[in-house]
C-alpha cells in the first residue's frame, strides 16, 4: 500500500489502538484516542472497555461521529453514564490498565506539559491538565500521542502537568505517583518505548527518514537494540480493514 493511501494521523490512530490489549480498561480523553479505542474494540481487543472522565463507560464503538466524549453517540447505548468520581475511583484503585495523554512538550522521562510554554519572551498559557495529571499519576501505563515537531521535544518541560518517570533511571520506583507511568510515545513519525524510565526508539513510520526524525530531539535518543528491546522496526501501516473502520468512525477526517 502506497504511503499516500493514509494520513499520518490515521497511522497514529492505528498505532495507538495497538497499545490497547484485549481485556484492558482504557481511559480515553480528547481527540485521537476517541477514534483509537473504537478501532481497538472493533478489531483485536473486543473485550476491552473504555472509561471517560465525564462519566461514560463503553464496551463498543459509537454509532456516529464523536467530537467529544460527551457527544450523544458516545452516551447512546453506553454501558453506564455516571459521574467523574466513579471513573476516577477506578483509576485511583488501580483498575485502569492504560490511559492516553497528549502534550505540547515532552522530555525523555515522559513528563508532559499542557499548561504553559515559552516562546521567546512570551509565556503562552495552554488549557491545562483536565484529567491528564490524574491519568499520568495513576493509570497502569500511559501512551503519549503528539505530532512530531522538534519544539515539542525538550530537555526539561516548562511545567510538569502530567508526571512521567523519575530522573534517576528507576522508572516509577522512586517516584511518588502510584501508576506505571509512560509506556509508549506515538508521534506522527515514529513510536518510542520507555526503558529504565527513559525514552527509546521502537519503530519508524513508513517513508520517514530515521536520522532526520531523530535530529528533532535535543538529546541522543537511545534505540531498541541499545536497551535490549530487539531491532528498530518499521511501524506497520494501517490495514485496509483498519482504514475502513477509522473512516467509518471519523467520516470527514475531522480528527484524522
Amino acid at each position: 500500500m502506497a504511503s499516500e493511501a493514509y494520513t499520518p494521523r490515521e497511522l497514529m490512530v492505528s498505532a495507538a489502538a495497538d497499545e490497547i490489549e484485549d481485556g484492558d480498561t482504557a481511559f480515553v480523553g480528547m481527540r485521537l484516542p476517541l477514534i483509537a479505542f473504537q478501532l481497538a474494540v472493533s478489531t483485536h481487543a473486543p473485550d476491552s472497555m473504555a472509561v471517560y472522565e465525564s462519566g461514560v463507560v463503553r464496551d463498543g464503538p459509537a454509532d456516529g461521529f464523536i467530537h467529544t466524549m460527551c457527544d450523544l453517540p458516545n452516551l447512546n447505548r453506553a454501558v453506564s453514564t455516571t459521574g467523574m468520581l466513579d471513573i476516577m475511583s477506578r483509576l485511583q484503585r488501580g483498575d485502569v490498565d492504560v490511559g492516553f495523554l497528549g502534550g505540547a512538550e515532552v522530555d525523555r522521562y515522559g513528563n508532559l506539559n499542557t499548561t504553559r510554554v515559552r516562546a521567546g519572551d512570551r509565556e503562552i498559557r495552554l488549557p491545562g491538565s483536565g484529567g491528564a495529571c490524574d491519568i499520568a499519576c495513576m493509570a497502569g501505563r500511559t501512551v503519549l500521542l503528539m505530532p512530531h515537531e522538534s519544539r515539542r521535544f525538550v530537555e526539561e518541560v516548562n511545567y510538569v502537568t502530567s508526571p512521567g518517570h523519575a530522573d534517576d533511571g528507576s522508572g516509577r520506583e522512586n517516584h511518588p505517583a502510584p501508576g506505571g507511568g509512560p509506556d509508549a510515545l506515538v508521534t506522527s513519525k515514529a513510536t518510542f518505548g520507555f526503558a529504565d524510565g527513559k525514552l527509546f526508539l521502537r519503530s519508524v513510520h513508513p517513508g520517514v527518514d530515521r536520522e532526520a526524525m531523530l535530529a528533532d530531539f535535543p538529546w541522543e535518543v537511545r534505540t531498541a537494540p541499545e536497551v535490549g528491546e530487539g531491532p528498530v522496526t518499521t511501524t506497520p501501516e494501517p490495514t485496509a480493514e483498519e482504514l475502513d473502520l477509522i473512516r467509518t468512525f471519523d467520516p470527514d477526517g475531522f480528527w484524522t
Binding site: 467523574m84 485511583q92 491538565s129 510538569v160 502537568t161 505517583a177 502510584p178
Partner: peptide
C-alpha cells in the same frame, strides 16, 4: 471533584494518590 466532594461531605479535605510529582 475531590474538593467539591469534601465540601459536600462537610470535611475540610480529602486525600488522593493523584497530583504527586506534578507541578499542579
Amino acid at each position: 471533584a475531590l474538593a467539591l466532594r469534601a465540601g459536600a461531605l462537610g470535611v475540610p479535605f480529602l486525600p488522593t494518590r493523584s497530583l504527586l510529582g506534578s507541578d499542579v
